[in-house]
Design a protein around this nucleic acid. Structure first.
Lengths: 203, 203
DNA sequence: CCTTATCTGAACGGTACGTTCCGTTTCCCC
DNA sequence: GGGGAAACGGAACGTACCGTTCAGATAAGG
């Protein structure tokens, strides 16, 4: 959108790269999912469509890179807060805030939506993208197990499925905001079950 | 797809109505979300596009009607099974089976995806479609409260958000199948919390 | 009988997709 | 210093779908 850009020769132009991600960022913030098309991004970025397709095979790939960029900017690791309750609540609420305050929420909604129409996108979402996002939670659960806050045989995957499922549900129905302590109570309930070793423990 | 249909005069032709829903059903089963376009449905049904748009303002509306039709065919009410645990597990597993065995799962994925690109579709999904689906669960929770299985002030909305959030997550990541007793354990954990009146109870 | 509403089919302008070709720029290597 | 090689923007292409409009045909209902 600024001055004219062109090739810088034999290698990739980082300005072009940034301009395209910035354009996607702005379109996402202004018009949501529907406003983001490869054509619109190219127009806004002052780039050629072949340039987009040279670096990103699909719109989903572009959105994923945008999401990761925002993530490293806005989302920090969760430090040791003394209890799994506090840490998990901080994690979930941090993610919700991230989704609300940045275009990342829009991007993520788009990525999920796209995955429902494209099998390859679904596999990449489930097998590469989501596991990366679970890394922070895994650290928290490791600490919790070391503290003895959850049983050694607790079904951690199920616990995370429930927490992220809840988050997805709120995101996809546009209800991230209604925080009447729901996250706190949900985490408390799940931790209680995971500690007892009864219900959320391995089968 | 069968013989030629035409107007039957002054009133709506039920064969046309059925043929369009059947065509959507088949396309959904064969090609998933991506295979369903208003054009493709019209072609397969041997119908005119104006006919589709006369009765359904959007693809989402068509998919919702298709979903409801399948639902009344495949999904029954949950009878009194003696415990909320059994009933909720039966409900959730029934829904998962419904999503797996019929095109309804594809339809529902499409409806959710569409809602991420269209605000009107999102509102209709959240404020009309989903509440209808919660009716069965509400009956179960009423019985549970009458039995004293969950506290009178339990946060029923949160409980359902968690259960359906989990189900959505599994549906949208195409992992409805891996039942290692996950549903049973999740329901048990939530019911325990809702009975204690501590964590899942009203704030 | 004739208004009225339905149906199919064809066509329209608009948007986006993903690709191809072109001419230009500049680095990298010889 | 010269010559690929690869990147860049721009234009155009064919395909697909969108949602709408028009035409022509059908047949119920008053």
């Amino acid at each position: 959108m600024t001055d004219r850009r062109t090739s810088i020769g034999n290698s990739r132009n980082p300005e072009t790269h940034a301009a395209i991600l910035d354009a996607a960022h702005e379109l996402l913030a202004e018009h949501g999912y529907a406003g983001v098309s490869m054509e619109a991004v190219a127009r806004r970025a002052g780039a050629g469509k072949p340039t987009l397709y040279r670096w990103w095979p699909s719109k989903t790939a572009l959105l994923i890179e945008l999401y990761e960029r925002e993530k490293t900017r806005a989302l920090a690791e969760i430090p040791d807060l003394g209890s799994a309750q506090k840490e998990l609540v901080a994690l979930i609420k941090g993610v919700h805030r991230f989704w609300r305050k940045t275009p990342a929420g829009q991007a993520f909604r788009s990525i999920i939506a796209e995955a429902q129409a494209d099998d390859a996108a679904l596999r990449s979402l489930r097998d590469e993208f989501l596991p990366r996002g679970r890394a922070t939670a895994t650290v928290i659960l490791d600490r919790a197990q070391a503290r003895g806050e959850i049983a050694p045989d607790a079904d951690r995957e199920l616990l995370l499925d429930v927490l992220f499922g809840f988050s997805w549900y709120r995101l996809l129905t546009h209800r991230l905001r209604d925080d009447t302590g729901a996250v706190e109570r949900l985490v408390a309930a799940l931790l209680a079950a995971a500690k007892a070793g009864g219900s959320l423990a391995g089968d």
